[in-house]
Design a protein around this nucleic acid. Sequence first.
DNA 1: GCATTATAACGAATATCATTCGCTATTGAC
DNA 2: GTCAATAGCGAATGATATTCGTTATAATGC
Lengths: 196, 196
Amino acid sequence: MRVKKQSVYNAILQSATAEFAEHGYVKSTIGRIAERAGTSSSNIYVYFQCKLDIALAVYESWFKAQIYNLVRTVRRQNMPEAKVKKLLEGLWNNIPKHKNGLTTTLVQALSTATPSDNYNPKLLQWTEKKIAELLSESVTGSTGNQEEFTSIANIIMLAFDGVGLRHNLSKPVDHSADSIQQMTYMICAMGLKTRN
Amino acid sequence: MRVKKQSVYNAILQSATAEFAEHGYVKSTIGRIAERAGTSSSNIYVYFQCKLDIALAVYESWFKAQIYNLVRTVRRQNMPEAKVKKLLEGLWNNIPKHKNGLTTTLVQALSTATPSDNYNPKLLQWTEKKIAELLSESVTGSTGNQEEFTSIANIIMLAFDGVGLRHNLSKPVDHSADSIQQMTYMICAMGLKTRN
DNA sequence: GCATTATAACGAATATCATTCGCTATTGAC
DNA sequence: GTCAATAGCGAATGATATTCGTTATAATGC
C-alpha cells in the first residue's frame, strides 16, 4: 500500500492559497496550482475531490484566522459602541476587502457550486454563532446569546457575502462607512432597550 | 447595409430568460440559448458582447418588475411595521428565492465577472435609491430620503445579494423569518427615535 | 528480507464551452 | 441597379476541469 503524504497535501494547499489570492476562484487553474505545488494536475484529485473542495479548505483556515483576529480586536475596545463598530469594520470592510483576501474566491466558488458538490455550511454556522456571542458580549456584557443577536449575526453575515460579491466589480460608490455607522447605531440602540 | 432585427434580439432575450431560470448562469450555454432562439451561437455575438451582457439584460427587466410589484405591495399596508416587514419579506425571501428566479443567475454572473467586462452598477444604484425612498415613506410618512435610510437600503441590498448567493447551495438552516422580524424591529425603532 | 497489493503519481485523453474567424447572403442607401 | 456594410452561420480555437490507463512505490503479512 501507498499512503498520501502530508507534505504533498500541504504543498497543494499552500500553492492554492497563493493562486486563489492572486486570481480568484474562476481564473485559477488546477494546472498552475499543481505546478507550484510540484505535482501534476491529476494527482491533485487524489487529495481533493474537486476544485471547490480546495477553495473551501483554503478559505477555512484563512477566514478562521481573520475571525480570531477580529475577536481580539473587538475585546480590546472598552465601550459597547466601539466594540460593535470594530466588529462591523472587520466584517464589512477589512476582511472582505483584504488585499490578498480570499473572500472573493469564496463567493465565486459558492456561487458556481452545484448541489452535487454538496457544500457543508459548517464554517458559516460556526461564524454566525461566534459573531452572535461576540455581539451579545459586546452589547450586554454577558454571553447570554439571545435570539436577537443570532438574527443580527445572520444579517451581518449575509451582508458580508454581499460585500465580498461586489468587491471584485469595479467598485461603485462605497457607502460602507455610513452603513457601518448606521448599523452600529441600530445594534446599540437595541442593546439599551434590552437592558430596560 | 443590413440591420439588426428586433425580432431576433427579442428571441435571444426570451430564450436566455428561460435558459438562465432553468440552469443558472454558469451552466447555461450559449449554444442552447441560440437553439431556442432559432439562431446560431456566433450570431448571438452580433447582438451581445458577451454572456454576461445577456444575463444583465435579462435580469434587469425581471428584477425591475419584481421591485415595482414590491412597491405596490408595501404601499398597500397601513402600519409602518407592516410596510417594513413586507419590504424585507420581498427582498430577503420572495425575490431572491423566487422559484423561476434569476437572482442566483445574477449572483453567479457578477461573481464571475472580470473588470474587463466593465459592469455598470446602474441597476444597483437605482434599486438602493428606490428602497431608501420606500423605507423613508413607510417609516416617517414623507419621502425626505434621509441619510439613514440610504444606509439601511444599502445594508438590505448587500444582504439581498447574500441571500441570493446562499440560496443555490443546499439550504442550511434558514433564519430568514427571524432575521426579517429583527430587522423590521430595528428599522421601526429608528423611525420612532427620528420622530422625537 | 521478500512477495503482495492497494494506491500515489503522472501523462495523455476527454468533454465542454465561450468566443473568434472566414465566408456568404442580404438589404439599406445612393 | 449597384455598392458596401454587416447579419448570419458553420467551422475553428483555446482554455481547462476532470477522467483514464499505466507505472512505480511502499505498507503489510509472511
